[in-house]
Simulated scan of single mutants.
Amino acid sequence: MTRPLSSAERSAERRRNWLKGEADKARESRGEVGQMEFWLRLARSRIAKDAKAGRGDVHVGFAQICRLFITAMDKRAEGDGRIWNDLLTYAQQVLEKNPPRH
C-alpha cells in the first residue's frame, strides 16, 4: 500500500505536469522552435531569480553552457560531431535521472 503524497510532493508533481504540458503546447504550436523558446524563457526567469537571491555564479554557469553549446555546433559544422553527440547523450542521461522538481 502506498502512502498519500505530501503537500510538497503534490506541488512538485503539479509543477512537473505543468512544465511538461507547457513544453508540449509550445511544441505543438511552433514545433521544436517553440519548445526551445519555452525552455529559454524559463531559464531566463530562473537565472533572474537566482541572481536576485545572491547566486550570481548563475550568470557564469549559463555563459559556460552557452559557450559549450556553440563549440559543439561549430565542431559539428566542421565535420567533427563527437562533442555534439557527447553533449546530447550526457544531457539525455541527466534529464532522465533528474526530472523537473519545481
Rank of each mutant, 00 (worst) to 15 (best):
T2F: 06
T2E: 08
P4K: 12
L5R: 08
S6F: 14
A8Q: 10
A8I: 13
S11L: 15
R14Q: 11
R14K: 06
R15M: 00
R15T: 03
R16D: 00
R16W: 09
W18D: 07
W18N: 00
W18I: 00
K20G: 05
K20C: 03
K20F: 00
E22W: 00
E22I: 02
A23C: 04
K25R: 11
K25C: 05
A26P: 01
A26F: 02
A26D: 04
R27E: 05
R27L: 01
S29P: 00
S29A: 08
E32F: 15
G34Q: 08
G34Y: 15
Q35T: 08
M36T: 05
F38S: 03
F38M: 06
F38C: 03
F38W: 11
F38P: 03
R41K: 11
A43M: 06
A43S: 14
R44V: 09
R44Y: 14
S45P: 00
S45N: 01
R46T: 03
I47V: 14
A48W: 11
A48D: 15
K49E: 15
K49Q: 13
D50V: 13
A51L: 15
K52T: 05
K52D: 10
G54L: 15
G54Y: 09
R55K: 15
R55G: 01
G56H: 14
G56R: 12
D57G: 05
V58S: 13
V60L: 10
G61H: 10
G61M: 09
F62T: 03
F62H: 05
A63G: 09
A63K: 07
I65H: 06
I65R: 11
C66P: 01
L68Y: 01
F69Y: 15
F69P: 00
F69L: 04
I70E: 12
I70F: 08
I70N: 02
T71V: 06
T71K: 15
A72N: 05
A72F: 10
D74M: 09
R76V: 04
R76Q: 11
A77C: 04
E78N: 08
E78F: 13
D80E: 12
D80F: 14
R82E: 02
I83T: 12
I83V: 12
N85W: 11
L88T: 09
T89V: 12
T89Y: 03
Y90I: 01
Y90E: 08
A91I: 10
A91W: 10
A91Y: 13
A91N: 05
Q92Y: 10
Q92C: 02
V94H: 08
V94P: 00
V94K: 08
V94Q: 07
V94D: 03
V94C: 08
L95D: 03
L95Y: 13
E96F: 09
E96Q: 14
E96N: 09
E96L: 14
K97P: 06
K97F: 01
K97A: 13
P99V: 05
P100G: 00
P100M: 00
